[in-house]
């Protein structure tokens, strides 16, 4: 289930914690499993739990509590748009509507070609750069006016 490369990365995370506290690495391990698979299946969550020696249900609790884990398949690119108040004042809601129109989908939907999933998201801690978006949980995009959004969409192939 987990590739040797993923396991190697998980081992590096385990090493950060006291030897009897392997469970502390579960958040990082789930993030690594999600990177490998594109989303988190029940099998992946169970594999992480077994590797860390914790009950699968405890790992499942973590996976369902934190909202950057995707428990269902998403498009090749997941674009999360912040619409919280500071972003909203600088066009976050407009940016989300603009993206919906451009992609022809609503929030929590994926384009027919499986390329882009759109998510409405909470504060990313970058309000000075509003409107802000994150691609695949990793790449933060700042000052997303219509022109910048067009550029981003052209890049997502």
């Amino acid at each position: 289930m987990l590739t040797s490369e993923s396991l190697k990365r998980i081992d590096r995370e385990i090493a950060k914690y006291p030897v009897d506290q392997k469970q502390s690495a579960v958040m990082a391990a789930l993030a690594i499993a999600q990177e490998q698979q594109g989303w988190l299946s029940s099998e992946a969550i169970e594999a992480v739990a077994n590797y860390l020696g914790m009950a699968p249900v405890a790992a499942y609790e973590v996976a369902t509590f934190y909202n950057m884990y995707d428990l269902k398949p998403v498009g090749k690119y997941k674009v999360s748009v912040c619409t919280n108040l500071p972003c909203m004042l600088s066009g976050g809601v407009d940016a989300g509507e603009y993206l919906q129109k451009k992609l022809g989908i609503g929030y929590n939907e994926t384009t027919a070609d499986g390329l882009v999933t759109l998510k409405e998201s909470e504060c990313m801690g970058a309000c000075g750069d509003a409107p802000v978006m994150i691609v695949n949980n990793r790449r933060m995009c700042s000052w997303m006016n219509p022109e910048q959004i067009d550029k981003l969409l052209a890049e997502l192939k």
Partner: peptide
């Protein structure tokens, strides 16, 4: 000293939720 990342839960900014989260639990 080590770095631990969150994964999308505002409540983990509350200090004891943050500790729970480092322990590998829901925050």
């Amino acid at each position: 000293l080590f770095a631990h990342h969150g994964y999308g839960a505002y409540i983990c900014g509350e200090e004891t939720a943050l500790l729970e989260s480092i322990e590998g639990k829901k925050g």
